[in-house]
Design a protein around this nucleic acid. Structure first.
Lengths: 238, 238
DNA sequence: TGTTTAAGCTCGATG
DNA sequence: CATCGAGGTTAAACA
């Protein structure tokens, strides 16, 4: 577990820049706090005026400018951005994150780098319990929750308009099942309808499986003669 | 611009806990790096085994456990979580973030708090240039891009199944316009279709406005006899 | 509070 | 590469 040398108030801009770049190159996460502007340009454009902020550079090239009032960053660059650290003519510390496809760039200009932390992150895969995928598996094992006489045939069936969560038959009629891990909304009925319409059989049965459903979604569901089956991700967590 | 006292290796767990809590209460962002486990339970469940991580506590009660290889945090708690800092019987530093509706909690147990930064964030509203909303405004000002003889009547028209981006008439026929700032996909055709179907008039014209459209979305669009109009958010940026 | 929608959505899987 | 779909989506706007 390494913690390479952080920036101190005594460091010159040049020393700060070197520390940041070295830490990044060696695979550390670099957290920099200071007074900066942020300029993003690419798929859209954003500008943050001079202010006190926290910038995180990840070893994979992703970069975040933290928002103090939400989990979503104010500005960011996804993985595989090219990170560069430089000093401009005004003796500001410049951190750039550039990427292609889409072509976009983020530039942080630090008038003052106040503090930093560099640390070697633990690489771990996170697994989430209670996912939609776990609900799929549960239904495949317990198809009777969908109703009587339904033969579940395929999970993630590819069709021309996407992927049907669970596909099967009730006697001769095709059955299309759309699964959601949270309260079903209008757009989820849309999705189910797209798959049902793709199956070229007017007898196709549409079933929405979710822990709950909004009132308007329920109305739309009824209009299309689809069925709702209640199942919560908590029920399927072992 | 204040930078309250950070945690140093010399601090006892108790001192560290006090510094974190005081900084949080006084409205600072608290960034803590150290060796910890993370346990989330609520809408789903997640567990991060012991490792070196960066935890950010925002003044609004949101909390992030940074991922070193993506912009999305490994674990988090949205705004308005209740933050508490404590010490357990093993002399670990415990940071909790609890919230109701939905009931969920995140617990970070630090075996070792290595470093921290506390800083007073700049509160600024960020505006993004090139949003879908800007495209709306552009179309309202330049309805001719939609085609000839279209009277644009309403922006964000509320209907029973949602909100129609732009609504109007071509002669006697209703016109429903769905606008996207990026390449249109199948689900966007679904959305347009939902609105068109809501308008109780078989002559209703559906128009999708976007910078581009995927092949399969184009097919579905054609099947429904909707029209595609090309407009990019970059074009509407002034 | 509940619902719908946009988002620079991100990210992973799959063809 | 493109495309689709999940996400503890988040966050905002509106009823």
């Amino acid at each position: 577990m390494s913690y390479s040398e952080d920036i101190t108030p005594e460091d010159s801009i040049k020393e700060s820049a070197n520390k940041i770049l070295n830490a990044h190159i060696s695979g550390d996460v670099v957290v920099v706090v200071g007074v900066c502007t942020v300029d993003y340009s690419g798929r859209a454009a954003k500008y943050l005026d001079i202010g006190n902020r926290c910038v995180t550079i990840n070893p994979d090239g992703s970069l975040l400018v933290n928002s103090p009032k939400s989990v979503k960053p104010q500005c960011w660059q996804p993985s595989d951005a090219e990170i560069s650290v430089d000093i401009n003519e005004d003796n500001d510390l410049i951190i750039r994150a550039d990427r292609t496809s889409p072509e976009e760039s983020l530039v942080v200009i630090f008038e003052d780098v106040v503090k930093s932390i560099h640390y070697e992150p633990t690489e771990d895969e996170v697994t989430v319990d209670g996912s939609e995928d776990e609900m799929h598996k549960y239904i495949m094992r317990n198809p009777s929750i969908l109703g009587e006489n339904i033969d579940v045939v395929e999970n993630e069936k590819e069709v021309s308009t996407g992927k049907i969560d669970i596909f099967g038959y009730k006697n001769e009629s095709p059955v299309v099942v759309e699964v959601k891990r949270r309260k079903a909304q209008l757009k989820h009925i849309d999705q189910l309808k797209r798959y049902v319409d793709t199956i070229d059989d007017t007898n196709t049965i549409g079933i929405l499986v979710a822990p709950d459903i909004t009132e308007s979604a329920k109305e739309l569901l009824k209009k299309h003669n689809y069925r709702f089956v209640s199942l919560s991700p908590i029920q399927v967590m072992d």
